[in-house]
C-alpha cells in the first residue's frame, strides 16, 4: 500500500521537516509521529512521516536476516550428517 522509503531528517521547522533520500530532499509533515530529532531516519509516506526507524532495530533486522540464512543452512547440514 505504499512505497515509503526510509529518509533522514536534515531540518525541522515547526510541524514540518526536510528529509533526504539519496541526495533528494523533500518536505514532510511530522503530525503523525511525535518528538523526532534531526538525524533520525523516518519511514515517510505521501508527504508524512509514519514511523521512526530505530537504529538498533534496523541493525538487528539486517543481522536477523543473515543469522536466519546461517541457521537454516546449519539445520540443513545437521540433518544431512544426522548428528543433531
Amino acid at each position: 500500500m505504499c512505497l515509503a522509503v526510509p529518509a533522514k531528517i536534515v531540518e525541522i521547522t515547526g510541524e514540518m521537516a526536510k528529509v533526504e533520500v539519496g541526495g533528494v530532499q523533500r518536505l514532510v509533515s511530522l503530525m503523525l509521529v511525535p518528538d523526532l530529532q534531526v538525524g533520525d531516519y523516518v519511514i515517510t509516506h505521501a508527504g508524512f512521516a509514519l514511523h521512526r526507524v530505530d537504529e538498533q532495530e534496523a541493525l538487528a533486522s539486517i543481522n536477523l536476516l543473515r543469522e536466519l540464512v546461517e541457521s537454516v543452512a546449519a539445520a540443513q547440514a545437521g540433518e544431512v550428517r544426522g548428528d543433531d
Partner: peptide, 12 residues
C-alpha cells in the same frame, strides 16, 4: 544516476 534513483523511489 543515484539522485534519479532516489526521486524514482520517492515517486514510485
Amino acid at each position: 544516476d543515484p539522485v534519479v534513483q532516489g526521486v524514482c523511489e520517492l515517486l514510485g
